[in-house]
Design a protein around this nucleic acid. Structure first.
Length: 339
DNA sequence: AAAACGTGGGT
DNA sequence: TACCCAAGTTT
């Protein structure tokens, strides 16, 4: 059954593979490891549609790993703004420098795993896709396809071990990278989380989930925790066409990113509500922004006084605010302040 | 090992 | 609107 499944899937992939900018171009035998790595980092917990413009911008500006390795971290962080999970950008620079230093990407799963930002999934994916290594590639798509194909009804995360074993059993020795991408394309377009299109599925006749269960109900997931709501304030301080921007601490929420100064809100606590300057303020509106583990109600306040902040920060020209690399939360706040 | 970590799109 | 989900990693 294993060989049959991989053959059917690869045949489906040959006819239905998505045309994505990080895949091998026509005439190329193998894709560029730099582009594969960059795309895989960007795609962590992030949709293809969101990644595409960032991938285009990054590869135009930094065409190879050496170029990225010599880029100032600040520039890379700003270019990443809006994509989320900003530790990825910091690790991206670290990894690029390590790769440039050693003269190229490691070409094995174990070697790749040593680079910052590459966990079990990404190391396996790059090894398989860029270097033709046989590797067991398990992402959320594969989890879903395999849980259904093998009718694995134990809940996540307990079922992960069984999913890995089953995935290993159907991973072919040849074209393991194409197999992985085929599984992901299938999960994305056919074996979807909701309303799977079993009538279009090349594996429908092999699927125990379809024969024995409701495939849509697999994999079973644990209940989610409730998401708290926090409140905070952000401050718009403007002078002569410039706005005062801070830079956030290296780690933690939006770490290392430029930002509007704020009152110290976090996932755990509300902000103190104490403006960083004495004087008059006016309300500019409220931003409601939902993160993975909490929702923030951010009150934006505009400064009416003339004092200068004593905190770390910089005056930034407002007409070039889009180049500051503000995370989406603060881009929304800035939009309100300028409205 | 559970929690932290962003954002945008789909339903 | 509210919730779910997405090519996960790190601590």
């Amino acid at each position: 059954m294993a060989a049959i499944v991989s053959e059917k899937l690869l045949e489906w992939y040959d006819a239905n593979a998505r045309d994505l900018p990080w895949r091998a171009r026509p005439g190329e035998a193998a894709p560029d490891p730099y582009r594969v790595w960059l795309s895989e980092i960007m795609l962590q917990q992030t949709t293809v549609a969101a990644v595409k413009p960032y991938f285009e911008a990054f590869t135009r500006r930094w065409p190879n790993v050496e170029a990225l390795a010599t880029a100032p971290e600040e520039d890379v962080m700003a270019a990443w703004a809006g994509l989320g999970y900003y530790s990825r950008a910091r690790n991206l620079v670290k990894a690029a420098r390590a790769v440039a230093e050693r003269g190229g990407f490691p070409d094995t799963e174990e070697g790749l795993r040593q680079l910052p930002g590459l966990g079990q999934y990404t190391a396996a994916a790059v090894a398989a896709i860029a270097f033709g290594r046989r590797a067991v590639v398990v992402d959320a798509n594969v989890e879903r396809v395999v849980a259904r194909l093998f009718a694995l009804t134990e809940p996540l995360p307990v079922v992960r071990k069984a999913i890995r074993v089953c995935t290993e059993s159907i991973t072919p020795a040849q074209r393991s990278g194409d197999f992985a991408q085929a599984m992901m394309d299938l999960g994305s377009a056919v074996c979807t989380a909701r309303s799977p299109k079993c009538l279009l599925c090349p594996l429908a006749t092999d699927c125990r989930g379809r024969a024995e269960h409701d495939p849509e109900a697999l994999p079973v997931k644990a209940a989610k925790k409730p998401k708290p709501t926090r409140t905070g304030e952000a401050y718009w301080i403007e002078r002569e066409g410039m706005v005062w921007l801070a830079r956030r601490e290296g780690k933690g929420m939006l770490g290392g990113m430029r930002a509007l100064p704020d009152d110290g809100w976090s996932a755990r606590t509300d902000g103190a509500g104490v403006p960083l300057l004495e004087g008059e303020w006016e309300g500019a509106g409220l931003v409601r922004h939902s993160f993975t583990h909490f929702t923030l109600e951010l009150s934006v306040r505009r400064y009416l006084g003339a004092a200068t902040p004593r905190q770390e920060g910089e005056w930034w020209p407002i007409e070039r605010l889009d180049e500051a690399g503000l995370p989406t939360l603060f881009a929304k706040a800035a939009r309100l302040a300028l409205a």
